[in-house]
Design a protein around this nucleic acid. Structure first.
Lengths: 342, 342
DNA sequence: TGTTAGCACTCTTATTCGCCGAGTGCTAAA
DNA sequence: TTTAGCACTCGGCGAATAAGAGTGCTAACA
């Protein structure tokens, strides 16, 4: 229902506002050389677009800015899919070189590059511990009453925790426990550990191990604690450099959210394979109501393992961000997979 | 060389400025009921104090604010040692309850409480991996070319890293490596691992292990990477709520520093046992030139293991902060020691 | 001689006013 | 349908002004 010209004007306004962060007037548009209409004509169209809800005015004598609906339309219909500039590609390539051994490093570095390239804040979830399986459990004694329990997953992830037990637990008991655990739990997904422990292992313990209760409670705790996934950030303060955030109080609120990993994880997580764009209130979260969040997933063996996200003002450089996210989504999956294979 | 009255006035001004963050005028001081001098007299004294460098004027018709030298004098001579309020003590006690198993949790929680109680930013270093000794090394294979190497220290700290080696390394070689490492390196301080590896172990490897070079480089890397200590923060954004920080650019600079753990670690670290107060430029670090940093150390078996720090405006509530820091320094040492003993 | 009242002076902050410029909306003409 | 023209709106900015807080100095006082 939008005419060709209206589409053009809407796109022009969004593009302009994205780069300049200032309300766009009719004259600015009409001065473009690929359009041949007078400011007056543009004004009429703008007025119509506003009536339809795509634009709004900060005040009566300023130019127009895109409304949330305007951004949404822009993202859905107006976006010309851009190629990543070769400069970006070489930048990424050089910074995400092969030197990274740990998948954790790959992720951290990706977050960093993403934020540097965009001057938004990047947030990366995972890799999903949840889905990975137990490879081995080790119990390493530190003193007579203390040991470190170490859980290694098949994806090479390591979790550890110190456990305490009473003086009178014998070394052979500890050994038995470790053996039982490794025998029974290898290959079990991390999220099932707790359950298995209560249902199967408990009774086995009872049979072979004296003083098994202490062990059991300690283990239960360890398994419970290590189910949440990690959150990595890049450029936490980048968002402060956006002109719309020169109010310290607002900034503080947003920055505080970043300290709550569990909350952020919930906000970012997206089950959808592929790219998701949430604009302003679409985030359904008050402090993000003038922020946009673009997320994509990355995979291991085709399975979801984590999410990458980019948080910026609603006035976000969508075309660039989208191609970047697509690139990273692919590249991280690839890097992690290669790492896991050879 | 300062008269009784000058001391009183200096203290009054610092106290007032600390709580109100606004230049203090002569009238404000004279209105205190425990002083019986007219504003004019106070003015004369203030003028003298300014000449001596303890006070300064933001501009000619504002009140006075303490200079850096003024704060220093206040901290060194004027501070009445205050008792921690019983409310604070119960607050701390309840939040730092016994439930914490991991020393990491104790530290994190301490950082959090400290920041909540003061609305400054707390920074905690350690516990010092550097000084601790190797307890055990484990190598857990993940795939044919991948293993996780796990280093456990005598303080129960765990470091891990994934290593990759060529297909043709035999299982028995790996086993040999682990055995040699555990035999030769147990009890060696972490910071000496790299050196020992090159000097002693290399030749042993050469003798017994085929394909030892790959192993060696992998290990070298692992040892190198795990020497730095961890930095924990509490209330990163607290500093934003101080009235002197409503400039987004300044805030950004400071927050960015917090992202550089190595830098922060260097700034905070203090070899001095006991309490250290660095005011403004005493930090010798441009971005901190109007911040104060109070640090204290905590110990394990009487040995230094880490530092706790509190970062706030120079206009800091020194009396309260000092007693809090003393309390935490003692309490954390105690908690950690108890944890290590029983 | 130390203290204080008084007063002129300084400087900041808040407020008001007027003006400029960017931009709109409407009307009428092409 | 498009556009030129014009009146109108509104925010932003600088100058002018007033208010207020505080100082420094002088002279008088105990």
């Amino acid at each position: 229902m939008l005419t060709e010209r209206q589409l053009y004007i809407l796109k022009a306004i969004v593009d302009d506002y994205i780069t300049n962060a200032e309300p766009v007037g009719s004259r600015t548009i009409s001065k473009r050389q690929d359009i041949n209409f007078s400011p007056a004509t543009i004004r009429n169209e703008m007025s119509d677009l506003e009536e339809m809800g795509f634009l709004e005015k900060p005040h009566s004598s300023a130019g127009r800015i895109p409304s949330q609906k305007g951004y949404r339309y822009y993202v859905d219909h107006l976006l010309s899919p851009t190629q990543l500039s070769s400069r970006d590609v070489t930048d990424i390539r050089s910074q995400l070189a092969e030197k990274f051994q740990e998948s954790e490093q790959v992720i951290q570095q990706s977050a960093k590059i993403l934020s540097q390239l965009t001057s938004y804040t990047s947030i990366v979830l995972g890799p999903e511990v949840f889905e990975s399986k137990l490879q081995q459990i080790q119990l390493i004694p530190i003193s007579t009453t203390q040991a470190v329990i170490i859980i290694v997953t098949d994806s090479g992830h390591v979790e550890n925790q110190t456990v305490y037990f009473p003086e009178n637990v014998s070394g052979s008991d500890v050994e038995k426990v470790v053996n039982i655990l490794n025998e029974r739990l290898r290959g079990v997904p991390i999220y099932q550990l707790q359950q298995k422990l209560s249902q199967e292992i408990a009774s086995v313990f009872k049979k072979y191990v004296s003083k098994y209760e202490t062990m059991l409670t300690a283990l239960r705790e360890v398994f419970r604690d290590h189910q949440q996934e990690k959150v990595y950030y890049g450029g936490k303060t980048n968002i402060l450099s956006q002109p719309e955030f020169n109010d310290v109080e607002r900034v503080r609120n947003i920055l505080n959210i970043f300290e709550e990993d569990a909350l952020v994880s919930r906000l970012i997580r997206s089950e959808d394979q592929g790219l998701t764009i949430r604009i302003g209130e679409e985030n359904d979260f008050k402090p993000f109501e003038d922020l946009s969040l673009v997320t994509a997933t990355y995979t291991l063996d085709g399975k979801y393992v984590g999410t990458i996200g980019l948080l910026g003002p609603t006035r976000m450089e969508y075309p660039r961000v989208i191609s970047l996210m697509e690139y990273f989504s692919r590249d991280m999956s690839e890097l992690l997979n290669r790492r896991n294979k050879n």
